[in-house]
Amino acid sequence: MPTAENHPDRDTVQPPEQDETPLSVLLDDVLSAMRQAVSPQIGIRAAMEVLRAGTDARMALLYRDSTHRPSLPDMGQWRLVHSCGRSSTDPFPDDDIVGETPMGSDTAPARHAFSHRGMDCLWVSERMHLFGRVGLLLHGLGPAGRLGQRSGDIVALALRILTAILERDEMHRHVLDRLPYDPVTQFLNAHGFQDEVTRRLGRLDWQDLSATLLVIRCAELNDVLHGLSQTEALAAMEHAAALLRRSARPTDVFGRIAHDHFAIWLDGCDRFAASERAERITTHQLPLLLARPRLLGLRIGLAEREPNSTTSVDELIARAEAALLDAEATGRKWMFDRSPA
């Protein structure tokens, strides 16, 4: 009597075929390279190198186009954003290529295989929703890249993934550029700081109050953060910002105007009060609680503004930064600028 396992009416389920061709492995390697990177830009560079090596191409070049009119012979409208391989030079002189690359539809990337200077090449482009197009050129394909239609499909799919990541990164940067504050320290950024200080000048003039700007630099900060992981560097910056805030009054304005430059605007603070504040900040320095605790030195440049002064915020920042350079050159912890207030 037949059992359930060998019943004649029972269909035998065949396991799916394992298609571990070099091309499928290549796509897995591209995805792994992007996932392991700490930032989208680094991930795209790593994926480009994996794609170039997997197709045995001489060069891989990534282009951006913001005109929505991609044309292969006229590379002037394409901007080279990354290249890897034996040479970083653009292999497309205008008089070497004849004919245009088709744009393709909105759902399928443009693709064009051709020969240039005796080498096989593949050009693939993909439309971005808001930021033009992205073009990928594999120049000088080796045997691993000359696998016909399926090779082009894998490269086109990899470019679609790169384009999606690049577009998301562009959107994040677009939002961050319009923020008035630094997301890491929660201090105002350079534009936000200038806007807030400018808004206060009218009230200071009406109340006949002076004010002082402090520009603080931690010269060792870049070196310390460079040796940390992304999570550790973020925690260190948040800790540094919290320490600087401890010396603040409710009316003070804090800003991060450069990577290692911070600014504090002190309403109603004359030279004497500002000198005491600068001395206290530089004496305490900046202790960071890392795996190996560090005590980072600080230098401060100060610029005072008298009531009804015509000096702009940009000029005050420039004067404070000049005083900071003088303090660093003379070995002093802090220094006022020598310009008239």
Rank of each mutant, 00 (worst) to 15 (best):
E100Q: 05
V313N: 03
V175T: 13
G331V: 06
R117T: 06
V155K: 02
R246C: 13
S83Y: 03
T185V: 02
E196R: 15
M103A: 13
L31H: 06
D74V: 09
I42D: 14
H172C: 11
P15F: 13
D94Y: 10
T67G: 03
G202N: 08
S339L: 12
V81R: 02
R160A: 09
R332A: 10
S229V: 04
A303I: 01
P40D: 05
H191N: 06
A327C: 05
P287D: 11
A236I: 05
W206T: 11
S229G: 15
D96N: 11
S275I: 00
R332P: 01
N308W: 10
Q230V: 12
R256Y: 02
Q77R: 11
V313Q: 06
L296R: 06
M335A: 09
F254M: 08
L243Y: 14
L80E: 07
A318W: 07
P16F: 09
F254Y: 14
I300G: 05
L51F: 04
D120I: 00
V215F: 01
E126Q: 15
R168H: 13
V197P: 00
D19W: 14
T107R: 13
N222L: 09
S32H: 13
T21K: 07
E17N: 13
L130I: 06
H284D: 14
F187D: 01
T55G: 03
D9H: 13
M103I: 15
F336K: 03
R160C: 10
P293F: 00
E304H: 15
A211F: 01
P91K: 01
P91S: 02
A233R: 05
R168Y: 09
H239D: 15
R127F: 09
H116E: 04
M128A: 02
Q194A: 07
L26A: 06
L290A: 00
M1W: 11
A341C: 09
S229R: 08
L201D: 04
